[in-house]
Design a protein around this nucleic acid. Structure first.
Lengths: 365, 365
DNA sequence: GCCTAAGATGAATGCGCTTTCATTCACGTA
DNA sequence: TACGTGAATGAAAGCGCATTCATCTTAGGC
């Protein structure tokens, strides 16, 4: 009896067939009450729990949705939390993207009766990651750039996959559902705000070195706003950094301020982490924000509100993104096996909102 | 071909047996390189992804750990986030317990090569919840009181289960591993702080109506500190509320302040949510915190730092708890099939820390 | 050039459950 | 009394993979 009990054990002990045991769990009403009770009693007695694997195998569906995300942990955040045990710097503050998406997905999944399987990619083989998740769920969401697109290409032929954040790949993944945020709109509006409402004209944009669709889109919004205001800008950000971390942001600020010529009136960063790093640099150099230099971020992470001056940024509705992802998956899953399921891939863009705080001059620091 | 490809399809197309296909994924080195490449090519071509279910069934292990938690969503938080779109009140602020535990578990699980399955109980049958999770994972953690103890009793005979937060049940679950925080110590220290460092003596404690081991432990700490200081206290909290929400906290404050006799100098709440609600009430009534009344919470949720005055509270290391839970499960899982596995159940208590902020008078509001 | 051992592959079985399809049984009806 | 009916249950066939054990190669060794 050291082995875990199965339907066979329960069936034998309660004098019914395994089919009946199965029915007791799948469709209780189809079994006579008396029989049902007997089976349940034995099951309880034996400590029987239906094997999800066997169930899934036989019914080819798992009742689980998945989420793959990259290892987002910013080394900065880690070390900072460890070093300064200050009240303000504790790690709780850093509710990451992934956390919010997880929360959104979990809620929505629960509503639809699904559980959620989450897995972040290790630096090792992403192969194992996606394979592991894909093989165990009915459908899943992937944060952009977590998994090689070609792998997704393959997997999406077999189950619903929705890509989060990051414009749809123009090449092959045209049949992948996709949810993004209005990166371009947000950055454009924020830039317009700096130019029109604060009268700033010497702007500098800091982006990411590796090609990142999101960052590109943000930069595009920046460029549009500048041009609309008659401000000349190049086709490239003023600076590209190797990683979008606080450390790099701090360094970037130094680099830009050390450049010859007039000091920029505003530093626009492609994400909040970098902007926060820049804030440190500016303070160290004795420059006041926003009086001497305005600073803006992008994302709207919790930390952006906690720093001083509070960071003006663009908030992304990550939680909602998670919810929408689930809705989409559920729709694909329930919508008949093959009707319009092969129909047009859905692509949705969620609106963002500019959050005006102190670092651009809107509120008192 | 509309059906999802299986090992059989791959085997046939690449001219090998299914055993070889399986080997290619499970143990690549045991297959000749040439053969391996051929199989992988076909797999890629066909869009083959190994079925996690079949794998799990055949190898009886899933590579997944689970977490069951109650539906913690505080209705307050929801409505507040929807109503006031204020910058300060956005939902990011509310990083709940479950979120932190999830994060801790995810990190630790990833390190050990496991994925994480999370599921919150719906109000419906908790049966389905736990069964669903239990059937799909190698082991899992449960937040106290999410699942009827008798169910756990049954399941724990079949796989490792670790209970989080909440003292071990004295009755039957003695063979369940268990991780808790030093609730009693924390509340005692916090109370001692109010009494000795701030000279407060008229205290009032607000707890939860339903029996909750954690809340009981906290109350116990409170009582100990009072008695040690020679302050008389009853065996019951001054007030028990039906739910530990902000709304109830607000109401509780009203109730306590309306009672005849001297106004309490300090209101101690069994969690932060209630304390925050009380803060609203006090402001409405024109009472200053901490000058007129001190207020304290318990938990150390992010919101506790964001409210004004910032809340003095006791921080629980929820994230670490998640990590420890995984470590424990992994140990159980890897530690031989039956050696000391049946050994003593582990029970660990994580230390908490008092966070002194403005609401008790320690820092400027 | 023949024999042996290690390496590569195949055949077959079982993992635990779901799901037709068929069978049995108890009634009500003609 | 014989027969149709629907409910309850059983028999059996997979679901897709991992894993022995047996079989077949192939590279050495003499």
């Amino acid at each position: 009896m050291s082995t875990t009990p199965t339907v066979y054990d329960v069936a034998e002990r309660s004098g019914v067939s395994i089919a009946t045991v199965s029915r007791v769990y799948r469709n209780p009403d189809s079994v006579r009450a008396q029989t049902r009770e007997r089976v349940l009693a034995v099951a309880r007695d034996l400590g029987y729990v239906p094997s999800g694997n066997a169930r899934g195998l036989a019914s080819r569906s798992t009742g689980v949705l998945g989420l793959c995300f990259p290892d987002y942990s910013d080394p900065d955040a880690e070390s900072e939390a460890e070093a300064g045990h200050g009240d303000e710097a504790d790690d709780e503050a850093a509710m990451l993207y992934s956390d919010q998406i997880i929360r959104g997905m979990e809620r929505a999944a629960r509503r639809h009766g699904y559980a959620l399987l989450i897995a972040a990619s290790l630096k090792g083989g992403p192969e194992s990651l996606v394979a592991k998740v894909a093989g165990r769920v009915d459908g899943f969401a992937v944060l952009a750039r977590t998994v090689p697109t070609e792998d997704l290409e393959v997997i999406s032929r077999r189950q619903p996959v929705v890509m989060l954040a990051g414009p749809r790949e123009s090449n092959q993944l045209d049949h992948l559902d996709h949810i993004e945020v209005a990166n371009s709109d947000g950055q454009r509006e924020l830039t317009r705000h700096l130019i029109e409402d604060h009268g700033l004209r010497r702007l500098a944009y800091v982006g990411f070195a590796e090609e990142s669709p999101d960052v590109e889109a943000r930069f595009r919004g920046y460029v549009e706003a500048c041009r609309a205001a008659g401000i000349a800008v190049g086709a490239e950000p003023d600076l590209r950094v190797p990683m979008m971390t606080q450390a790099e942001g701090a360094r970037a600020a130094d680099t830009l301020l050390d450049r010859p010529g007039d000091r920029p009136e505003a530093l626009l960063f492609a994400n909040d982490q970098m902007a926060v790093g820049a804030l440190h640099t500016l303070e160290r150099r004795g420059l006041r924000v926003p009086q001497d230099v305005a600073v803006t971020g992008f994302d709207g992470i919790t930390l952006s509100r906690l720093v001083r001056p509070a960071l003006t940024t663009v908030r992304q509705p990550m939680r909602r993104m998670g919810e929408e992802a689930v809705e989409l998956l559920v729709r694909r899953l329930s919508g008949g096996r093959t009707p319009e399921n092969a129909g047009e891939p859905v692509s949705m863009t969620l609106p963002v909102s500019v959050v005006r705080r102190a670092s651009c001059g809107c509120k008192a620091a």
